[in-house]
Structures are given as C-alpha cells and as structure tokens.
Amino acid sequence: MTVHSAPTRPKSFQDIILTLHDFWAKQGCVILQPYDVEMGAGTFHPATTLRALGPKHWRAAYVQPSRRPSDGRYGENPNRLQHYYQYQVIVKPSPADAQELLLASYDAIGIDRRLHDIRFVEDDWESPTLGAWGLGWEVWCDGMEVGQFTYFQQVGGIPVVHPSFEMTYGLERLAMYVQGVENVYNLDFNGHGVTYGDVFLRAERDYSKLNFELANTDILKRHFEDAETECNALVAELVAQPAYDQCIKASHLFNLLDARGVISVTERASYIGRVRNLAKACAEIWLSGESNG
C-alpha cells in the first residue's frame, strides 16, 4: 500500500484511514471491512463485542460507519452528523505499550507531539445496551476529544478473561484537526478535490428527515419485536453471530424510535433492558462455542 501525501500538505480523509490501516496492520492486526449491519458505534461490530470474550488472543482494526439518528442536524451543524466513521482497534490481551502505540499512530497521521498537547482525561466507558463497561480515557488533542481509549472489563454482562485494549478514533474530528478545517463538510476527502460534503451532505439532509420526521414508528416497533423474536430463536439454535446480528438490529431500531421521540422515560429503560438481554444471550452462546471449539 502506498500513501500519497506531500509532506507539507495535511492528509486527506481517506489518507488518514489508509495510514491507520498501515499502522495497525504492522502491529499484527487483521484489517477488517465495515460490518454490514447498521450500528451506533464500532464497538458493536462482532469483531469487538464477541471477540472480546473468551481466552483467544485477537487483534483487529477496521472502519465502521456509525449511526446516531438523534445527532442528525440536516447538514446544518458543522460538527454533528447522524452518520459518521469510527476507526476501531481492538488488541486482546491489552499490550503494555498500548498508550505508546496510540501516540505513535497520531505521529503517523501527522500530529506533531512537540507542538500539540495530548492528554489522557478520565472517562469511564459504559454501554448499557451491550451490558459492557471498561475504564480508560478520552484522548485530548489541544482540548479536543480525538478518541476514546478503553480497557474492557465486562461485555454482555460477562467479565472478560483477558482485558482488551480498545481504541476508537472519531475520524471526522481527527481529520478536521489535521486539516485545520472548521466545518466537517469542507474536509478534503481524497486529496483530489472531493470534499466530505460532496460525498455525504445530501445523505445527511435526507436521513435527518427520515430520523426525525418520516420513519414510520409503527413499522419500527414491529421490526424491533421481530428482531427480538428472531434473536431469541437463533440463540436457542446456538448460532451466535447470526443471533447477534438481530441484537444489533434491535439496538439500531431502538435508536431510531428514540430519535422520533416516541419513547417515554420508563419505556426507554425497558427497551435498553431488552436489548441488553439479547446481547447477554448472544455473548453466552458465543462463549460456550469458543470454549468447546
């Protein structure tokens, strides 16, 4: 792989991705492609959630499109998107030099640590829908959060055997920083004149409309029920990843319902509990399959 970038010119959006791929591939990570189910964060990818469980060592890196329906701003907010990209790294068990590796990856992207103030600020990570938590930090660059660094302690309600190091880079933010751009839509996407807005602005407008105005909430509720039913049926058959696909779907449908504002406070807790139960069931059958295999 060659990365085309003049030394004086900041990396384009896609160059940053290619650089990170190159960097983490050299650390022995398998470079995966995005998972083909809609999800709220890269953590939901089975390469993180399921693989964090069990005794087998594992190293992976991938880009994951992440959907946060309620963060839609019709393309009018320079910083918020309902669809954005996370770069996700998982290394199990966590290496002793995890922090140094992360800092070296920033060097590779072109953040000069002699000029920029990089800090690890307390931020405990918890995903109620995944029954997962870990301790770690927000990584700050000159006061801006550019990543989330976590040592996994529990996933799917199950304490992990080997704590993983998980790093989530917010790619748009990082690119905006590297390029010195204040509006996400002005990001240089490819170094050949295509901007982030050229690629995504229209979609942001249309999906915002879907998320807040158009999505048929009766259908969404029905789909949620269906995903839940199917997940439970697949759990009974011990097919962990197909069952987990349905869990991710349920989670995204819940996020959509939430964005449409049709979930009351008490219902909210109940929906989260239902998704968590699915995640736990999937984690359990995944783990039983791992130890048997």
């Binding site: 000029l115 103030d117 800090r119 660059c141 000159d142 801006m144």
Partner: peptide, 29 residues
C-alpha cells in the same frame, strides 16, 4: 485561561489555536 502539559516549540501558538477552535465549536453548539 487554561493549562497545557507541554512547553511547545512555538510557545503554544498551535495549542492556543486548537483550544480556541474547540471552544468555538462548543459555543456554536
């Protein structure tokens, strides 16, 4: 006023610019 954890080679110009940018985004929100 804020505190950096670095005596930067450019006397903190890039750090100040970065922090001002973050605050702009925050306040824009």
């Amino acid at each position: 006023a804020f505190v950096a954890n670095l005596a930067a080679e450019d006397d903190g110009r890039a750090i100040i610019a970065g922090n001002e940018r973050v605050l702009r985004a925050r306040l824009a929100d």
